[in-house]
Design a protein around this nucleic acid. Structure first.
Lengths: 333, 333
DNA sequence: CTGAAAGCGCTTACAG
DNA sequence: CTGAAAGCGCTTACAG
């Protein structure tokens, strides 16, 4: 590799087809503009030369790159995977290329990736994680690029947001726990702004339902299975032994259940468990896990549909799109 | 967004710093070539204008895009995630942008993505899934791009391969099963060329150890948890009730174990289980799962290191890099 | 429906 | 260490 003869250019195709480069360019980008007979000659020339358009040159000339940057914290068992998958599926169908950037959970990586996305003149930047840094938010606002924040509904969106209210999720869980008659919830809250919002929603609704302050614990990110296991063990030595553990993620809920079962503690009879995220395994576990489902694929599709409307020059009636969520009662609580 | 004043160009920075565009270009790409005082003036001009280099124009002019295309089948609980993560981490440090393409398990998506990767003049294409189509393999060979196939060691690599022998994995599992004294293995083989190679390796080594043909079942991709559960149930009504189920993936192993436990069948006492992949959960399950570990992160890092050597113009002593694998005995078998 | 030509924003020999 | 200028491979008004 690396030492082949130079790849064919538009030039070569045009010469072979006996037309100008402009016509070949139109053949690729506005096929309806070229006469059928001409198109046929070009098609042959393309095949004969194995020509693949240079999108770098094309992007520079046209000022449209058909490149979308998707910036996500991580992909290993990420809750965002359905969104990413759906987004990439849809965008690929539209001829877009997706540049996936992994931001981790700090700001600096995110900054470098945003610069890379802008530097490559992406048509759009889609974020799944939360971008808190106000300078960067403003910097993005100053850029001629569509920015879509997903999985949340920030009060001051950079541009467009597609997500749901994390506070409402917390409230819904608290109401469910209350309705089911549990008295001593133990909250396993994951670090991070959004998890905190769910937590705050829970606390508020729980109080409103007439209860006192629940016991709780903070889990650092990235989460690990062992943290759920350890949390279960600690929960057994709490003064107020919990009757339900409200987990910040399905992974933690799985860990709690597996550890409980290994310890001979019956779920949900002796201890109920609630998760968040509705990963595939949660429906399959024994017992199956009561959790909150977010339609991640829908978020992805909606983000792309907004993008399409933007690309078509359409004005948007709103910049905040709420996809909602569903609490799914199952066996574990 | 989309209606801001035009972004600053190299031009604007150069004017402001009182130098030529060539010097500003060097400031970014060969900083050691510009005098400290000049560099300082440029630094200020860049800050003042919030200039972000246009990598599209740069790529066209320099014929180096610093773009790497990583083509993977999927990301939802993919066995390749560690490789992808490590690769992106390393490449980001080198200033590369990674375009992640999701190929699915068919050929046409892969073809489109390869064209996109070539069209954008990627410096390299990294594949984790298997590309079988010989036409496409040859087409890639004809392209001035570094191609790295990972997670396998094809007999006819397109360019460079970093992986391990799937056949050897199958053999190692068969030898382990034999050594542990199991007599009636039940193979849950996943569809796909590589899984078939592991399967073939098992069969051969199992025969060599003096055994007959094991019972088996084929699991279609994409895998689902329920397939493992169903397989367990069917295994209980087999004439030759298996003493160990050899699963094509840890996910299937988890499903078998969870279903076995729910059915009151003790693992490993009544039924042993072996997985493949060593996902995080496998060490954490009760019982923990005996499985084969592939150092996916190492594959990613090695792919990048090969890429670096290629980029540095170094000649490679070999085009096949074997990272091996490790069978990890745990509680389940 | 098609072509000649300018231009997209950089990089890089070449000369000094 | 720096600059003038050609060129990277396309797209797209403009004219016909």
């Amino acid at each position: 590799m690396g030492k082949q003869k130079r790849p064919p250019r538009l030039n070569d195709v045009a010469a072979r087809a006996g037309v100008s480069t402009a016509t070949v360019s139109r053949f690729f980008n506005n096929p309806e503009m070229v006469a059928p007979a001409t198109a046929e000659r070009i098609r042959e020339a393309v095949a004969a030369t194995s020509y693949i358009p240079n999108l770098v040159a094309g992007g520079l000339a046209s000022n449209r790159t058909k490149l979308v940057a998707a910036l996500v914290p991580e992909i290993a068992q990420s809750i965002f995977n359905d969104t990413i998958q759906a987004m990439i599926d849809e965008l690929s169908d539209d001829g877009y290329t997706v540049m996936l950037g992994l931001t981790g959970y700090g700001d600096d990586r995110m900054l470098k990736l945003i610069d890379a996305a802008i530097g490559r003149r992406s048509d759009a930047i889609i974020l799944t994680g939360l971008l808190t840094n106000p300078d960067v938010r403003n910097r993005l606002r100053a850029q001629p690029v569509t920015v879509i924040e997903t999985w949340g509904l920030p009060p001051d969106p950079i541009d467009i947001a597609v997500g749901f209210s994390h506070r409402a999720v917390g409230e819904a869980i608290a109401q469910y726990v209350h309705r089911r008659g549990f008295k001593r919830p133990f909250l396993l809250t994951v670090e991070g702004t959004r998890a905190q919002m769910r937590h705050a929603g829970f606390i508020e609704a729980w109080r409103k339902a007439g209860h006192g302050k629940p016991t709780e614990e903070r889990i650092p990110v990235p989460m690990h299975f062992s943290q759920g296991r350890d949390a279960f063990r600690r929960s057994r030595s709490l003064a107020k032994r919990p009757d339900v553990i409200v987990c910040g993620s399905d992974l933690l809920a799985q860990a709690v259940i597996i550890e409980a079962q290994a310890a001979g503690c019956r779920v949900p009879d002796e201890l109920a468990v609630i998760g968040f995220g509705n990963v595939e395994l949660s429906a399959e576990m024994r017992p199956s896990i009561t959790t909150v489902s977010i339609d991640g694929a829908r978020i992805g599709r909606m983000a792309v549909s907004v993008l399409r409307r933007r690309a078509a020059g359409e004005a948007l009636e709103s910049h905040n799109f709420d996809v909602g969520f569903t609490l799914i009662p199952r066996e574990s609580a």
